[in-house]
Amino acid sequence: MSEAEAKKVEQMEEDPYELEQFHKILEDSKILSCVQCGKCTGGCPAGRQSRIRIRELVHLAHEGHDIKDCKELWLCTTCYNCQERCPKGVDTTEAIISLRNRAIRKGDHNFPEIHTTAITSLRDQADGFPLSPDVESIRSVIGLPKHPHDLAHDPEGLKKFQALMDDLGIVELVMKKQCGEGKPWKYVDIKYKPSVARGTKKEGESNE
């Protein structure tokens, strides 16, 4: 075994987000129980309006395909209809979240660019939707404190929160890289064809 190969094996053993290890995480969502009945896709509110096909994603994941750069992953509204109704107890929504986690972890994803602003907003202001001056004044008018009693307005606490986020390394992780098809997408033609062709199994080399 060459040094590079040895290193790769070592990495694989360490990083659960490497494809083969990652399947253990997916198995926790019980995807091995899937019988491809289509109950998930049938009632998917996003699937009716876009290309996301939960059954297909579960099937591809089940077959060991690497679908981390698949745009459909980011079209799920996490309504949990599919998970709730799955006759075989597959945690489909959780599987989608696991797939998203891996896509982020591998930096090889295809997620909407705007999502990166959310993470910086969370770190800077401890909120996904920060307070605007307009709302400040409305708050005062209706008898609420101008500034909510929250973490954003507690400098000491905010500092600790930021330390926690830095320790978790989440900002770095999300900002790391967006490759996938090469560009992050801003506005997506949601009716596009599936971005994963069958037979791409074991392709899984990251572009790094």
Binding site: K39, C40, T41, G43, G47, R55, R85
Partner: peptide, 19 residues
């Protein structure tokens, strides 16, 4: 596998994937 049967007045709408 029929995912849901949505009542629509006296009629019904079945949501199902043609697999």
């Amino acid at each position: 596998n029929v995912s849901e049967i949505v009542p629509n007045g006296e009629d019904l709408i079945l949501r199902v994937e043609d697999t």
